[in-house]
Design a binder for these strands. Structure first.
Lengths: 334, 334
DNA sequence: CTGTTAGCGCCTTCAT
DNA sequence: ATGAAGGCGCTAACAG
């Protein structure tokens, strides 16, 4: 327990150099004589020196905080991405500060303003619905990256996975299991992810020579409840199907519940595939086949990308692959 | 878009007073001539002045941030509490900054240190495993409150619900449904919540004149996986039971999965009750009967309590009631 | 390469 | 009640 706060001055004296030199080795941005360097480092170590973030911030103009726009509504996937961001920032001098966009463009706008007012040094947007045009204006005022969302014209600043390919894989798995009448519960159509997954679904059908049946496609909103409704509406319309590919696990849960209520057996009567592999999916009855996205790695990559960007460094994002997790919710037929 | 940053100096000049005076009206802690007061306020308004949090913090004032120690592992319940905290702080001048304790005393300690280094004005601990003794030392160095955990000697600084009573209710529901052989899957025994719920379970049995059978009590760790194991171990030992009260929903999910694998029907053969009412519980097959805790209100209350505490104000916490959510996972027998 | 000199924006004695 | 002056801990020119 260091009773007295030791400052840059203390270590400067202790190492027989000026405060500036200490500052220099601290920021490691200006050549410093190797001997002094070591001396300083040694002193810092010995005195257990911890730079004062606040002072540093005041002097240097940056707040050492990076703003994170989160989306607290919707699938837990975004929570994990946010966790990844926190993780990616945890060993740096930066602290994240959060604001919740709730998937609402208006709220997002004001949340971003709050963040900027707080003088953040950079911005990470986790998902979000804000039109790209609104973001374009901000793009050069603050360093920023976007996770879990792909935006036209932002390619090098978006960290996300190939939703189309993953959805195609998932759908093909159903097809390969013998299913032909496959329904799709789509997420919010305004949402690029939802559209991408729908496209993947279509691509899979096309490649297998199965005609797209619009009646089998139902719009949801990524909530469990909408999954229930989707199945009810399908049943209501009397469309028949043996497989369902849901735009996310939440809707898959809802779908499964709806079937439970109707006495439709899963997977004997209908097979289900979800998307997101949220933690509970493995514990559903039956366990859900789903697409796993590397949520936390995505968040981490975003944090790293932003830091690199702020330092004008190059950053090569790690491979971010999705994986189809096969579990009992799919039945092989025929 | 204020191009140039306006500082205390600007408004001082604009209001024909000294910076000190401005500072005084800002902090509202020293008598100031009413006229000047107004003039200053007016200038601040007109110039759209926003105090620089960082400078203020450096100068020894407060950082306008409150540290939140979160627990990112474990049930989503704690996430919701954290959301509540964010919510409770959202309309104040304070911003939360987070650190993750991961339910690990060591990590918690260092996380708290990080927070304090950041010069937070107050601390909110969401859950946590840190021994009370460690906290006692901090208690008068920083204003702090604890949510979702009850600690001896901290009564007026803990925001939580009555776990014992809620667990008793839940167990009694099973008893009233005709169950006599009721198993309990306990959470981490080091965790007060786990112990409280176990106590509630015992109390219910006692009140109904049912002898406690130690064989029916299995230790878990709040994870789904441990729920699976718990049931397997029960089955292995050949203990028979018709009801299960799990220490949280996660473990209830695991229990349900284990039964699915064994071909045990729920609720026809065995009834299950969980705790936490996490979002997916309603979408289980069958939907899970569980205890709902007002997670977000708890977080909000904590934030408000802390603020009141920092201002030396009185704070009466709102009523924080749990509720047993009855769903299909319980079967009436006999 | 390195020490010196100024601040960053605000708070806080200390006189007045 | 209020101005002036001195710092909080650190960074950033500016001369050497």
């Amino acid at each position: 327990m260091a009773r007295k706060k030791i400052t840059i001055k203390d270590i400067a004296e202790s190492a027989n150099v000026s405060k500036s030199t200490v500052s220099r080795v601290l920021n490691n941005n200006t050549p410093v004589n190797e001997e002094k360097r070591l001396a300083v480092l040694e002193a810092m170590e010995r005195l257990n020196y911890k730079p004062n973030v606040v002072a540093r911030s005041l002097a240097g103009g940056n707040s050492m905080t990076i703003g994170v726009l989160t989306q607290n509504i919707g699938s837990p996937f975004y929570d994990k991405v946010t966790q990844g961001v926190i993780q990616g920032l945890s060993d740096t001098d930066y602290s994240p500060i959060f604001a919740d966009g709730r998937w609402d463009p208006e709220i997002e706008t004001s949340a971003i303003k709050t963040l900027i007012d707080r003088n953040v040094d950079g911005l990470i947007m986790v998902g979000g619905n804000l039109p790209g045009s609104d973001l374009d204006s901000l793009r050069d005022s603050k360093p920023m990256v976007i996770v879990a969302r792909r935006l036209p014209g932002w390619d090098n600043k978006c960290i996300s996975v190939d939703n189309v390919a993953a959805a195609k894989d998932a759908t093909e798995y159903l097809i390969n299991s013998g299913h032909r009448k496959i329904a799709h519960i789509m997420g919010i159509p305004e949402h690029q992810d939802a559209r991408d997954r729908y496209m993947g679904y279509q691509a899979a059908l096309r490649d297998s020579g199965i005609a797209l049946d619009e009646d089998l496609v139902v719009k949801g909103n990524f909530s469990s409840q909408s999954g229930v409704l989707a199945i009810e509406s399908l049943l209501m319309k009397g469309v028949s199907f043996t497989g369902v590919f849901a735009g996310n696990d939440e809707m898959a849960f809802g779908a499964r519940l709806a079937m439970y209520r109707r006495g439709i057996r899963v997977p004997e009567d209908v097979s289900i595939v979800g998307y997101d592999d949220q933690p509970n999916s493995a514990f559903m009855t039956p366990p859900l086949t789903t697409v796993a996205q590397p949520a936390e790695p995505m968040g981490e990559a975003a944090a790293q990308a932003l830091l690199a960007f702020m330092r004008n460094q190059e950053f090569v994002p790690p491979r971010l692959d999705t994986e189809l997790i096969v579990r009992e919710s799919v039945h092989r037929i025929r």
